[in-house]
């Protein structure tokens, strides 16, 4: 995205507005992530919203700036880590004497355990989705730059 960086250098309105908006988008992503039990949303939507905040950052400020915030190795680890976190909840439930992904055993009562399990697996979903989407955008953008 070297072209993108140079092209956006003079776009003052775009740069200022996205500076204001990106934190709000990220905050909204966290709200969607941790409010999914009460309202519409959950890990998948939150991950996509968080990723779009970072992708907008990349489009406006350039690939190098965004890679300082979210380095590629970190994204790679997070992309696998979210799915592993999800699977680990299932294994932990088995260690507690339940079935795979049976969160009821994770808490003192079955509903409490369910809520704990759901919050953790939604976090795993959000982490994997967000980091994978940003990873895809980075890979495409790098490919564009190499041309």
């Amino acid at each position: 995205m070297s072209a993108g960086r140079d092209a956006m250098e003079g776009q003052l309105i775009l740069r200022v507005v996205s500076k204001f908006l990106i934190p709000v988008i990220m905050l909204f992503a966290l709200y969607v992530q941790f409010h999914g039990e009460y309202g519409p949303g959950g890990g998948f939507q939150a991950g996509v919203i968080m990723a779009s905040a970072l992708i907008v950052h990349m489009l406006v400020f350039g690939l190098d700036e965004t890679r300082r915030v979210a380095p590629l190795p970190v994204l790679r680890v997070l992309s696998a880590g979210g799915a592993l976190l999800y699977g680990a909840v299932g294994i932990v439930a088995m260690l507690f004497g339940g079935n795979f992904l049976d969160y009821g055993v994770l808490g003192p009562t079955a509903p409490t355990g369910q809520v704990i399990g759901i919050i953790v697996i939604e976090l795993g979903v959000g982490i994997t989705v967000a980091s994978t989407m940003v990873l895809l955008a980075f890979l495409f953008a790098e490919r564009v730059r190499e041309r």
């Binding site: 999914g36 979210g82 299932g90 939604e122 979903v125």
Partner: peptide, 26 residues
């Protein structure tokens, strides 16, 4: 024990499917 039935279906009753979806994204 959570109000949003969609979330409880996706995350708990159908937890296997959602795990599969996350693995697909990865």
């Amino acid at each position: 024990g959570i109000p949003n039935v969609v979330t409880s279906v996706l995350a708990s009753y159908r937890g296997f499917d959602t795990l599969g979806e996350v693995v697909v994204v990865f």
